Simulated scan of single mutants.
Amino acid sequence: MKIVKLLVATAALFAATASFAADRQVHLRGEVTAVSPTEVTVVDRKGVKTTVKLPPALQVMDVSRSSIAAVQENSYLGIAAAPAPQGKVRALGVMIFPEAARGLNEGHFPWDRNEGETMTNATVAKLSKKASATELEMRFGSKTQQVVLDGATVYGQFMPGSRELIVVGAKVLVIGGKADDGATTANVVLVGRDGFIPPI
């Protein structure tokens, strides 16, 4: 039952994130300042306040801190990264997927946390430890992407959560859409545990 719940929740998460560049797609990162059974107010890092509708079918992800020790060959990861020399990318945030979520939204595509960032959802085909950093060869289908992990990389992991996690002061990533009237409705809310900021 837990695996089924995880698959359903994760499928909702990555169905919501698969085409973030599409018109009206919303990724809202910030801190919860007010919450009710039907709405949440989030203030982003620029101080902009947004009220978001919470529908009955809302999915909540419980995101906690992890570490590079959890990254191994054959791990399935989601990596938010910035460009690096020689066609590589430098990992800013790494989300370690549970085994039940392997393969969901696999690929390498633009990401919207900061200008020029990308997201790579893929399997670790090779892990190489070097003096100042660790390099990963990430494989998705027949393609690969070289990723550099360094001391600034933040690591997280997730599991299905409940609405009770959405409280004032929580750090969240809201994934949703904007209607013609400008109202924003959440599909998925990733909530950082104990003040942790979701790393993607």
Rank of each mutant, 00 (worst) to 15 (best):
M1R: 13
I3L: 08
K5S: 13
F14T: 07
A15R: 00
F20Y: 14
R24G: 05
R24D: 14
Q25I: 00
Q25W: 11
H27V: 00
G30I: 09
V35Y: 05
T41P: 03
R45P: 02
G47L: 05
G47D: 09
K49Y: 02
K49F: 01
K53T: 12
L54R: 00
D62H: 14
V63S: 09
R65V: 13
S66N: 11
S67P: 11
S67M: 12
I68N: 08
E73Q: 15
N74C: 02
S75D: 09
Y76P: 05
Y76K: 03
G78S: 13
I79W: 08
A80I: 08
A81C: 09
A82D: 14
A82C: 01
P83Q: 06
G87C: 00
K88R: 15
K88I: 00
V89H: 08
R90Q: 15
R90T: 13
G93A: 04
M95H: 11
I96V: 15
F109G: 03
P110Y: 14
W111T: 02
W111Y: 15
E115F: 14
T118P: 05
M119I: 12
A122C: 05
V124P: 12
L127H: 06
K129Y: 06
K130H: 14
E137Q: 09
M138H: 10
R139E: 09
G141Q: 00
S142K: 14
Q146I: 10
Q146P: 01
Q146W: 05
V147P: 11
T153S: 14
F158M: 09
P160V: 07
S162Q: 10
V174F: 04
G176N: 00
G177T: 07
D180K: 13
T185E: 15
A186V: 07
N187W: 01
V189H: 03
L190G: 12
V191F: 10
D194G: 01
P198S: 04
P199E: 06
I200L: 15
I200V: 12
